[in-house]
Design a protein around this nucleic acid. Structure first.
Length: 803
DNA sequence: AGCACGCCGACT
DNA sequence: GTCGGCGTGCTC
């Protein structure tokens, strides 16, 4: 068993296989499957994952493994299997799948350097290049007087060698602690011996006479209002000793969480949790879909189920959408399970993510709460997997590997023979249909735990407002209601549903719209920088004063951003104190929480924001929720637009009147008759489900069919069209089921992005067991063009974003 | 991917 | 001759 099978860090389809390496003597005992290694690959050195050990290889001249990067495996056997499955499911590369399961910092970085290995004289150019140094970064070659062929020759002559370095991005945080180095009475003597001026030194020593324990250096210096130089002097005199040790960065360190205990469950909650607890006890896998209205106490069910899992000595994964948005959620988990919880979300720094990951890896926690990628937490004894707000599309990764966390959860649930819980007030049609068919077990929580009614929803037809001369974004009813709440000292949440809209710039004379020169999309106006920016590439230009086309100065921006709304709201209701929450105001780390805390402390009357305020917020003083434009995303070219609208409206409505005060919701729309708006206002999920299912059936969309999206992109328009056509033809010729439909090629909704044209083919199918194999075969035929010609073909086996 | 090797036209 | 550009094939 002295041969390792390695998946190497080369993202190319021709390398998507294991490579065999000999395990040298010194690594025989320590090298385990699942560790990262450094291996020679051609002339260079690269990182790889050991996915197996064997005794023999079909390859005869094996190279040695150069180095081992880990002390313990970073991938468990289960995760290796999961990675293989994931790569096959999503048509990705093994290496891409493995990297996706680990924190960013574990990805290797590569560097090259030139080393001078001769003392003898080199050519003049080389002498000045090395300038007395033995090692020079390879990049310095560009811009220097040394040509590549000169280096080549020097390497051949043995004067210079190229070193291939594998660098780790991992940084560990350390802390230095200080402790006394002698018995108290010896310190006492030392104080006597110190010079009269050494006041700080004496203070420090005196402190350690009473206090034998080690103390963090930074704490010590702060306490005595001194610096490290004083400490250093005492260390040099060997009166104190220091110890440098590694610590975890703890993003939640400074917050104390009030400990909570299990709440008494309502009858409905009890009925829901019992079968889950049975599955935990019997180690049985099943998927449970909890359909529970907002405020029905889903989280308490999660908490108590996890409690059972912990008591059994097992582990739990909880996924929540973009956790940074819901500090309240973290609080609930930390409050119940304290330091037994690791938190993984996108707002953490890479170092923090790595430290949280290591706490899981070292089995220091039993619970992880996190965003999508937390589903890969390296637990080995899982007892439950929970996906809260199951309908959120942030659970789908939109780059390779294009996986859905729900599928990964179910795969792991089967592996570990444990239940998977999906929870939502507005489940996806896919999940609900499965629950209806009995594939998932359905539990319904129709009552709120506080027995309160859902807030009343009023729909305002904005067309009437317009007819009666109100051209503002605020209906009279909304304005009056806002004023009334402010008077009563209550708070308001306003949602600007901006998807599909943006502030673009148009010339009023000739109709010219400023577009991105690299993408087929209008530029978005950003007021604070007075710049026009492209949201798809990083292009930006300053706001022109004249129309670039007809030179007219009547150029104006259109559309509605939160900034505009805030301005007109201030005009309309001058006494209103407004906080704004959108991508612009939350870019900085922690700004999220700051804004929310500000609102919670009643420093503002109105919280105005985009989508991100719809989820999970819970403020007791909010009695009015207003939706400014309910239909703005109803007309997007996306078959899920009705579903998304229904979900958003239902969710945001749940933000009002969660506590003692009764809540009210005002939805402004230009299409009040649309079923997703009407049914959301009645909280009628079942009727919505029925309506939407019949639409999906008529137009043959999921869950009635599966979709696969193939996108082709290239700088040359003709190449793209031709390639996409050839792909479509190949698909048509080889599909096995006559019910399968191949649509396209058609231009992607954004037909050009970053100077590349984009065309897509959509496959709709019910039963096409060999589709993955077929697509893989087709793509292989284009391998050459992909490599040589900068052609790009991407496949999404389960597209959510049809862009 | 990224590197060497080999072939080719261009230039001091 | 020597240099750099680009196509080709290989990496345990």
């Amino acid at each position: 068993m002295n041969i390792a099978k390695v998946i190497v860090d080369v993202p190319a389809s021709s390398i998507n296989q294991t490579f065999d390496y000999k395990i040298p003597e010194q690594f025989q005992d320590i090298l385990k499957v699942g560790m990262r290694v450094i291996v020679p690959f051609g002339p260079r050195k690269i990182m790889g994952f050991v996915v197996g050990r064997t005794g023999e290889s079909s390859f005869d001249k094996l190279k040695n493994i150069s180095d081992v990067l880990d002390l313990t495996p970073v991938l468990t056997d289960e995760l290796i299997g999961l990675g293989k499955w994931l790569a096959n499911q999503t048509l990705s590369l093994y290496i891409t799948a493995f990297q996706a399961m680990l924190p960013q910092v574990m990805k290797a970085q590569y560097k090259k350097e030139l080393e001078r290995v001769t003392d003898g004289p080199l050519s003049d150019e080389l002498e000045s290049f090395f300038a007395g140094r033995d090692f020079v970064a390879y990049e310095e070659l560009t811009g220097s007087a040394v040509s590549y062929s000169q280096i080549q020759k020097a390497v051949q002559d043995g004067d210079v060698v190229v070193n291939y370095l594998v660098k780790s991005k991992i940084t560990k945080k350390h802390v230095t602690t200080i402790a006394p180095n002698h018995e108290p009475h010896l310190l006492e003597e030392a104080i006597q011996d110190l010079s009269k001026n050494a006041r700080k030194q004496k203070e420090l020593l005196a402190f350690f006479i009473d206090n034998q324990q080690e103390i963090e250096q930074s704490v010590l210096t702060k306490k005595f209002n001194t610096t490290s130089s004083t400490v250093k002097t005492l260390l040099d005199k060997e009166l104190l000793k220091s110890n440098r040790k590694e610590i975890y960065r703890n993003p939640y360190d400074d917050k104390s969480f009030e400990q909570t205990t299990a709440l008494t469950l309502t009858e409905q909650q009890q009925e829901t949790i019992v079968p889950i607890q049975e599955h935990i006890r019997d180690e049985k896998h099943d998927v449970f879909l909890i359909h529970g209205v907002t405020g029905s106490g889903k989280t308490e069910i999660y908490l108590q189920a996890i409690q059972d899992v912990i008591e059994k000595g097992q582990e739990a994964i909880v996924l929540v959408p973009e956790i940074s948005l819901t500090p309240q959620m973290v609080k609930r988990f930390k409050g119940r399970f304290g330091s037994n919880v690791a938190v993984l979300h996108s707002a953490l720094s890479n170092g923090e993510k790595y430290d949280e990951w290591r706490r899981i890896h070292r089995k220091e926690v039993q619970v992880v709460v996190g965003a999508r990628s937390a589903i890969f937490a390296p637990f080995e004894n899982l007892g439950i997997l929970i996906i809260d707000e199951e309908h959120e599309n942030s659970y789908k990764q939109e780059d390779q590997p294009r996986y859905h966390a729900r599928d990964v959860a179910i795969f792991r649930g089967e592996n570990h023979r444990c239940p998977v819980i999906l929870g939502s007030a507005t489940p996806t049609l896919e999940s609900f249909a499965r629950a209806q068919k009995g594939v998932y077990k359905l539990a319904t929580l129709s009552k709120r735990t506080n027995e309160k009614e859902m807030p009343k929803v009023n729909i305002v037809d904005m067309r009437n407002e317009l007819h009666e001369g109100n051209r503002s974004m605020f209906s009279r009813s909304l304005k009056e209601n806002i004023e009334q709440r402010i008077q009563r000292g209550e708070q308001i949440v306003l949602l600007l549903n901006r998807r599909g809209y943006s502030t673009f710039v148009m010339c009023r004379d000739c109709g010219h719209v400023n577009e991105c020169p690299h993408c087929d999309i209008a530029l978005t106006y950003h007021k604070n920088s007075s710049q026009l920016k492209c949201h798809y590439c990083s292009y930006e230009e300053s706001m022109p004063t004249n129309c670039p086309s007809c030179k007219s100065d009547l150029i104006r921006f259109f559309g509605t951003g939160t900034q505009r709304i805030e301005e007109s709201l201030t005009q309309l209701i001058p006494e209103a104190r407004i906080v704004r929450m959108d991508v612009d105001t939350t870019r900085r780390k922690g700004s999220h929480e700051k804004i929310l805390n500000q609102f919670a402390d009643k420093e503002a009357d109105i919280l105005l924001g985009t989508q991100m305020i719809a989820k999970g917020l819970d403020f007791e003083n909010v009695t009015l929720v207003g939706v400014l434009t309910a239909d703005s995303m109803l007309h997007l070219p996306d078959f899920r637009s009705s579903e998304k609208t229904f979900q958003l409206l239902t969710q945001v409505s749940g933000r009002a009147g969660r506590h003692d005060l009764p809540g009210e919701v005002i939805i402004q729309t230009y299409t009040p008759e649309h079923y997703s708006i009407e049914l959301a206002s009645n909280y009628d999920f079942m009727q919505f489900y029925k309506n939407e299912m019949s639409t999906r059936k008529t137009f043959q969309y999921p869950p009635y069919v599966f979709l696969t999206l193939i996108t082709v992109s290239h700088q040359n328009h003709v190449t793209v069209v031709q390639t996409a056509q050839r792909i479509a033809q190949l698909l048509l010729n080889n599909i096995s089921n006559e019910e399968t439909v191949v649509l396209g090629p058609t231009p992607s909704p954004i037909a050009r992005m970053k100077d590349r044209y984009r065309y897509q083919c959509m496959i709709k199918y019910k039963n096409e067991p060999n589709l993955r194999t077929l697509i893989r075969k087709i793509i292989r035929q284009f391998d050459d063009e992909v490599r040589k010609n900068d052609l790009l073909i991407t496949v999404d086996m389960q597209p959510y974003q049809l862009m």
